[in-house]
Design a protein around this nucleic acid. Sequence first.
DNA 1: AAAATTTGTCTAGTGATATAGACAACTATA
DNA 2: TATAGTTGTCTATATCACTAGACAAATTTT
Lengths: 253, 253
Amino acid sequence: MGTKMVGQKSASSIERRSGVSVWRQIADQILHSIAAGDFAENAALPPEVALAERYGVNRHTVRSAISALVQDGVLRAEQGRGTFVLSRKRLSYPIGARTRFSTGLQGQTSERHIVLLTSAIEPASQRIAEGLGIARGTDVIRLETRGEADGRPVSRAAAWYEAKRFTGIDAAMAETGSVTASLKRFGIDDYLRQSTVLSARHADAADLADLDLQPGAIVLVAIAVNVTPDGRPIQFAETRFPAERVELKLSAL
Amino acid sequence: MGTKMVGQKSASSIERRSGVSVWRQIADQILHSIAAGDFAENAALPPEVALAERYGVNRHTVRSAISALVQDGVLRAEQGRGTFVLSRKRLSYPIGARTRFSTGLQGQTSERHIVLLTSAIEPASQRIAEGLGIARGTDVIRLETRGEADGRPVSRAAAWYEAKRFTGIDAAMAETGSVTASLKRFGIDDYLRQSTVLSARHADAADLADLDLQPGAIVLVAIAVNVTPDGRPIQFAETRFPAERVELKLSAL
DNA sequence: AAAATTTGTCTAGTGATATAGACAACTATA
DNA sequence: TATAGTTGTCTATATCACTAGACAAATTTT
């Protein structure tokens, strides 16, 4: 019995007939194990036979899991030598009353920016109207953006602003690449995060494409309302983070 | 160019050969759709043939998805009539500086409590020692608890306290079923959440058992440090929430 | 009563997933 | 150089996942 004890980890085993294939479950566990810091950068994974024994599966099944992670750029396999962790650690993304994309990630990455993907004017849906405190059907501007750090997508957001009040914010965003700078043009020097609701789900087809994820990946979903210091709603936003690359740090509590 | 439909809903499609079976992907999407409020309580799901057409799969595949959700208590199928949503909405779980289990869920459920599962004394690991600001290897008390609301598990936590300072807190927890009440016995009338780190992952075998989840489910993981008002660490805790039943609301920002 | 709608069950065929074993290719080490 | 350890490839087989079609059973509508 390979009583492999991993510190505090449970003996995480495999569920059959669950709708999730064995190789993917193993890939997920390896990924989780790497993210948890069980392997140093460039460290060797246990050999395939050992992993197969540990998970109680055939070696070929382990190979399927590994090859998915190699495809994904997480591992590198070298014939005769072993399989090695390329692992980039997860970004710790701060969430707080004054969270700004750029400030919080300082020091963790060398390069980061926001890309404006599309913008459109549309009538406010029920939940957006509620969030912004306006009547349902009022025109709002929707900005779709992607946040990138070191060339990898780390967030994907849709943000809604009241159209009448923020005419031209799409151009400002495209030009400055910064929400804070864009809002300055509308006389808003400061804004606060009023509320945030967090959930998690499997990535859908859009997430897979937008965030460059593999099927089966998990996204963290944050729905937030930003307000001026005196409490007037400015922005309603839904942001999706790839759970494998990002963790959320609630620091300003 | 795929004209991306952005009504509110993405054209949520199915990924083949992803390691996640088609029926599970559909089950997840239906679940997500229910959680998003697309169906009223007791509303009828579209008929199987319609769903099959919409997802571009065989009717039997849709039936697999539905039967998993029926097994899971989310849907009820009635021959000749249709399939109906039993849907219990997700609990909105508040996370803030002064989050207490009981207070925040008020009004959302009729019954809620914390069960102490096990307790043990063990040497502090690196990360726990760091969190509590003590030397690695110092004895700490670990309390394993489960939070339940309306008879369903909504959280599963491991909390660590310095053993010397909080001798007997396990008994206090067992007796009172409340962290706040237990800490009062040690002269702590108030405590704050210093920091919280959030992530999400697939539920492992332990989560499945502890939280009564189906394989493939997602858990939100919150790692928190609680401190006294003057900043002394009291408790280091890791809490897992079932993403399908709980969302986290960051309100006290 | 009849028709239409919907879920439930059955059979059959195809492709993906997983197991099993053997051996080749490459690397590091004794 | 020889050996042990590791990844890469091949064949074969069994099981699961998905498709396809047909019909039964139950309910609602006409």
